[in-house]
């Protein structure tokens, strides 16, 4: 079952709020180690799709699979809770607004879940915190609280927190959208580093330059459907669909 080309599979994902259809029959395969960017206007459903992968937003139809296991299995409530908690340990997520735990230092943000869920000893947790914070260049702030960090630093700690669970897949939900422009690069750099380590990543982003530089594939979504997908050089330089062209024209013009 663990076909590396179908490491992450989304099959006929469908989601509606009442009569509003946010996702309309979306299917997507991501290979192990692949990096996929999802772009599109706000309200296109790209965040909803990302949040469906770890069931933060439950789909109303369709399936999500990770490494041969169905994430949104239909199980009785209690069993499902146990199952989804185990699945989520394998799926790291980084949010637009960081969502660091303000009452914990950077160290505790990173080690809280591994200690609680994997029973790490204090020494193991300490080593893990140092390893992960070093990876994101935040080792010197290990005992700082989030309120003492800049936005970019917070996001780097949030990435370390997600990595500490040793996930198979990382989801980034507009990880740099809330940052001051001068702080975007430090976060992008960390994400590039992860890409070089062949972490499988799905990235919802507004940053076309970053998507072009780092991603293997780009999906353009609009109104709940994938309008067009392909390698970044095709999507950005030579899109086929009018909607894609129009979006890119607005967006690239706006960015310059």
């Amino acid at each position: 079952m663990t076909d590396p080309n179908h490491f992450v599979q989304i099959r006929h994902a469908q989601k509606s709020f009442g009569s509003l259809e946010v996702l309309k029959d979306i299917s997507l395969n991501v290979a192990r180690g692949q990096i996929v960017a999802i772009i599109g206007p706000s309200g296109s459903g790209k965040s909803t799709l990302l949040r469906a992968i770890n069931d933060l937003d439950a789909l109303t139809g369709g399936e999500v699979w990770l490494d041969g296991v169905q994430v949104n299995k239909s199980l009785p409530h209690r069993q499902y809770e146990k199952h989804i908690n185990e699945m989520r340990q394998q799926i790291g997520m980084v949010f637009q607004h960081f969502n660091l735990f303000p009452h914990m230092t950077a160290r505790d943000n990173v080690t809280m879940a591994p200690k609680l869920l994997k029973g790490l000893t204090n020494e193991e947790a300490d080593a893990l915190a140092k390893e992960q914070l070093e990876k994101v260049g935040m080792l010197d702030r290990i005992d700082y609280y989030p309120s003492q960090l800049s936005g970019g630093q917070k996001q780097r700690v949030a990435i370390a927190r997600a990595l500490a669970m040793k996930p198979k897949l990382m989801l980034f939900d507009e990880a740099t959208s809330a940052l001051d422009p001068e702080l975007v690069d430090e976060v992008n750099l960390v994400m590039k580093k992860l890409a070089e380590e062949h972490m499988t990543m799905i990235i919802v982003t507004h940053e076309m330059d970053f998507a072009a530089a780092v991603c293997d594939r780009v999906l353009f979504m609009d109104r709940g459907v994938v309008v067009e997908e392909g390698p970044p050089e095709v999507i950005f330089r030579n899109p086929e669909k009018d909607r894609t062209k129009e979006f890119l024209r607005k967006h690239l013009a706006g960015a310059k």
């Binding site: 809770e81 908690n85 989520r88 790291g92 969502n99 735990f101 879940a113 609680l116 927190r161």
Partner: peptide, 16 residues
């Protein structure tokens, strides 16, 4: 408490 806090905690695998 900001609901992003619950989300972030659930995302790393904590139960409710």
């Amino acid at each position: 408490v900001d609901k992003g806090q619950m989300e972030a905690a659930r995302t790393v695998g904590l139960s409710r």
